[in-house]
Design a protein around this nucleic acid. Structure first.
Lengths: 212, 212
DNA sequence: ATGCTTCCCTACCGTAGAGTAAGAATCTGT
DNA sequence: ACAGATTCTTACTCTACGGTAGGGAAGCAT
């Protein structure tokens, strides 16, 4: 009589548990989240968590794994080889920021929790490194005359870092995806102080200036 | 007979304790660090920690406070009003990255630990926000014809984010300060794919490649 | 040489929370 | 309608660790 729902097949319950776990982890962090809290949130009893996932660590790892999966999937449209490299970068940017905009919990769990939790950082750093390598590739492909000695990987590190910082603001609801994508695209190609996008833009309208 | 050293004046012991605490916190994170571990590292007994700082939280807060202080101090040379804004930005960049290069533990504690520890994040976010505002100001001051509607704060967020990402690589010993500063300066003014610094550069010499 | 202050320790308490034992329902095939 | 598998719960155990009680020894006055 845990709450009403009962006797669901394992596969379903597992997802429910992960949903609850991601929620609570993203709210309170790994250490300040108790298994009881997750169980309660999932309207289930604690031993179920241990039956399906073996331990708190494994449960958290499962969260990272599923959310990381989703994260990578959200970026695959950017891999479309039909697009010009620079367009790919634009798509990647929008996919990335769009993913954070929705799925804020995933973002919080993956980046603000997992990355700082020794023992899980490596697992996330993998997806991150792939993102960086992808970015480095796109930068390299779309640069006409690369200055000799240019380290595209470090450039990608910087750009991804900028993206993550901006993503945090998106997750905080302070700016919207389009504006952020514009900013980062300009950052990549013209520098911060450079003019904005040369073509269209402002087409949307002149209104507020901030999102919310 | 805790280890040999004995009966030091309070002010000294307090610093010892903070040194030890910063070390251990930066290695293991807040939650995976026990007060016993810190006491042992400081060659002191646990009740001393509680006598001088009242609790684990307060001790951690003291760490953040001291390291944050040092962090801000390291950036003050950039405030020199005699410098042109763009030079100020360059100095700020080098001060920031230089600080991370030495004081890696401070960096880890402040950013990788405190920022992800709910309850302390706000305290650090303060210093961070000031850094962002400072950067935004410098950007604004040194931009000739600001495109109307340009949000310098968000730009600063992006640039600082890039700086933090690069700083992590510095802390990891993967690149050196000068190279990172060049990269970020170029990022700010010309964009990632832009040419490197037009003037001197490579003037330093080809030596070691690492600092320490 | 006696009190007062400062510094410091050994030994303990209390509890939050990870993990488990034991078994009760419910479903599925035959 | 019975056996076996699957889902699920209540009610525990046990340990790590934050925090404390109580006292001891060293310096410094007068």
């Amino acid at each position: 009589m845990a709450g009403g729902t009962k006797r669901l097949p394992r596969a379903v319950r597992e997802q429910q548990m992960l949903d609850a776990a991601v929620d609570v982890f993203s709210e309170n962090g790994f250490h300040d989240t108790s298994m009881d809290a997750i169980a309660t949130r999932a309207s289930i009893s604690k031993p179920m968590l241990y039956l399906y996932y073996g331990s708190k660590d494994e449960l958290f790892a499962a969260c990272i794994s599923r959310e990381g999966q989703r994260f990578v999937e959200a970026l695959t449209p950017a891999g479309d080889p039909a697009l010009a490299p620079r367009e790919q970068l634009r798509v990647a940017l929008e996919s990335f920021l769009g993913f954070v905009d929705q799925h804020r919990n995933s973002w919080m769990v993956l980046y603000r929790q997992a990355l700082s939790q020794q023992g899980f950082a490596g697992q996330v750093q993998n997806s991150r490194d792939r993102l960086i390598e992808l970015t480095a590739h796109l930068l390299e492909s779309s640069t006409r005359e690369p200055d000799p000695g240019t380290d595209f990987t470090i450039m990608a590190v910087a750009l991804v870092g900028a993206g993550e910082a901006v993503a945090d603001r998106i997750a905080g609801g302070e700016i919207d995806v389009e504006k952020a994508a514009d900013l980062l695209e300009n950052l990549a190609w013209r520098g911060l102080a450079g003019k904005k996008r040369p073509d269209h833009l402002e087409s949307e309208h002149p209104e507020t200036g901030y999102s919310a």
